[in-house]
Design a protein around this nucleic acid. Structure first.
Length: 511
RNA sequence: GGCGCCGUAGCCAAACGGCUAAGGCAGCGGAUUGCAAAUCCGUUAUAUCCCGGUUCGAAUCCGGGCGGCGCCUCCA
């Protein structure tokens, strides 16, 4: 049984779907006005992992991430750069897609609807709300009347009375301060569309209600987003959708913790310099990354780190927790990841099989059936079971990764104990163990393909030839007990960033 | 000020009332090695920010502090 923490009820609930075997999942995507930074990758990676795990559990998952391509910030950016808003949106959407692709998320997303492709539907939806008397026109704009909804505040767990008591919000053309715009009237020079209320553009919240309904139906299963979107965005989505349809918009509201910026974030590519000189305290003092104007572009971060390393970092703690960003932390998890890569090589050496070509079970049921009866396999099965329990419990990827390490240790120990590197032994259990490691890895979106950097260096033919020359020279020196020469070669290579390992089957090198 | 989240070893982190508080990184000792590296074994929290309470039993539940963070500002 999979249990999911629901923001609506503030408890973990048994996961149940609207339609048997099918899951509709919607994630609030980016406003495409600047290149994405690492904070933008948190939600996609987490919900991609959730999709992978649900698929593994036999669900057919329809995963939607929206693209907000019309908004104040986009207009401002377009004006500043003196180019059309659509040009800004296209450029930044392309950047976002490349980043998602690097993180292994893009292919997992079934649709990326854009707000501007749904203007007609947005107008229809808005008119529907007016017809039902949940919205009113005022001066060319249309507002949602929150006072008409008795349960407004149920997602963010606050009440209208309480908020009004604080004197928050501003009234202007609105009936109540917390009424929000469904449709905004156009100002001169702004992109606009014709509507029954004159030229204008959609408000921020309406697109998500409209597109989620278009693609996933009036009631769907999972709505995700960052914790910062709970209020007002998700509160307002629910208000719109439920007022319009008279039924629950979504059964499970899931919110991921935000990535906290440390001062370092802005340092890559020197993007922080501008913000700092402008006295942008937010980027100076940290806070959530999504707001930090100094956060470095994710594409720059990809030059420094393997995407898998970043993914591993994001999944190493529970999704509802805030994550503190730091380069040290990413380096650190990278070292843990390297231990897996070393095992994969070790595995290939012994079995002649590339770990990445192993055909592992892609469903939980198949995995259950694949259990063998040797001592190692039993141990592996126990860890697999623990892994499943961790993931069943609100997608506890942090705990799951701990179990991945346990599994790794058991497999390495088996190789050591059976001396598989020097003598022929029973490799069947090892292959089975590696298969389970791959099965688990794939549900987390890990170990999909060999780490890129290390591969490219290793595949350089000249480098390979030079390395075998040096290794041969060193082997001759060792044979002649000339350890000084042997150590010189090893130390000098170390200075070049190349590590030599004298393994049972011969010397190996790595960067 | 209002609503809410969080505080576990040097650092990161799991745990959701009950066996010895996972795991990673760093450190230390050992096996192995010509020496290393890698791998494995052992070790590093009389114990979960502090103070009370509930309970046979609390890192977990309740109350009160202290500290960190988010939202409640941008005709949203």
């Amino acid at each position: 049984m999979i249990r999911v923490y629901n923001t609506l009820t503030k408890t973990k609930e048994e996961f149940k779907t609207v339609q048997p075997g099918k899951v509709g999942m919607y994630l609030c995507g980016p406003t495409v006005y600047k290149p994405s930074h690492i904070g933008h990758m948190v939600g996609p990676v987490i919900f991609d992992t959730i999709k992978r795990y649900l698929k593994y559990n036999g669900y057919d998952v329809n995963f939607v991430i929206n693209i907000t391509d019309v908004d104040d910030k986009l207009i401002a950016e377009a004006n500043a750069r003196k180019i059309p808003m659509a040009a800004v949106a296209d450029e930044m959407t392309a950047d976002y897609m490349r980043n998602l692709d690097a993180m292994g998320v893009k292919d997992s997303v079934d649709a990326f609807p854009k707000a501007t492709d749904h203007i007609g539907n947005i107008i229809k939806f808005t008119q529907g709300l007016i017809d039902k008397d949940f919205a009113y026109e005022s001066d060319g704009a249309v507002y949602f009347d929150v006072g008409k909804l008795s349960d407004y505040g149920k997602v963010s767990h606050r009440s209208l009375e309480q908020m009004l008591g604080e004197g928050g919000g501003t009234a202007d053309r609105k009936r109540t301060p917390f009424d929000f715009a469904l449709w905004k009237s156009a100002k001169a020079g702004e992109p606009s569309w014709d509507s029954p209320w004159g030229k204008g553009r959609p408000g921020w919240h309406i697109e998500c209600s409209v597109m989620s309904c278009e693609l996933l139906g009036e009631t769907f299963d999972i709505h995700g987003g960052g914790l910062d979107l709970v209020f007002p965005h998700h509160e307002n989505e629910v208000a719109q959708s439920e007022a319009r349809h008279g039924k629950p918009m979504c059964n499970f509201w899931m919110h991921n913790g935000l990535m906290q910026a440390s001062n370092e974030v802005g340092k890559v590519g020197g993007r922080n310099t501008k913000a700092a000189s402008e006295g942008d305290l937010e980027s100076q003092e940290g806070g959530k990354i999504s707001k930090s104007k100094g956060a470095s572009a994710f594409r720059d971060m990809l030059k420094q780190f393997d995407p898998e390393q970043i993914r591993f970092f994001l999944l190493s703690s529970h999704y509802r927790r805030p994550i503190d960003f730091s380069f040290e932390r990413i380096e650190e998890v990278g070292k843990g990841l390297d231990t897996f890569y070393r095992f994969f090589k070790r595995f290939e050496k012994i079995t002649g099989t590339n770990f990445y070509t192993l055909t592992a079970p892609t469903s939980r049921k198949d995995g259950d059936a694949a259990t063998l009866q040797t001592p190692l396999c039993k141990q592996v099965a126990e860890y697999r079971q623990k892994y499943l329990e961790a993931m069943d419990d609100d997608f506890n990827t942090g705990g799951a990764i701990g179990i991945l390490f346990d599994l790794l240790r058991v497999l390495n120990k088996y190789v050591d104990d059976a001396k598989l590197e020097t003598s022929k032994g029973e490799v069947g259990p090892l292959v089975h163990g590696a298969m389970v490691l791959r099965e688990i890895g794939l549900t987390l979106g890990l170990f999909r393909e060999p780490p890129q950097e290390k591969e490219s260096a290793g595949s350089n033919e000249l480098v390979g030839k030079l390395m075998s020359l040096l290794i041969e020279l060193r082997a001759n020196a060792k044979k002649a007990k000339d350890f000084q020469t042997a150590d010189t070669i090893r130390n000098r290579l170390k200075d070049c960033g190349v590590t030599l390992e004298d393994r049972p089957g011969g010397t190996e090198w790595s960067l």
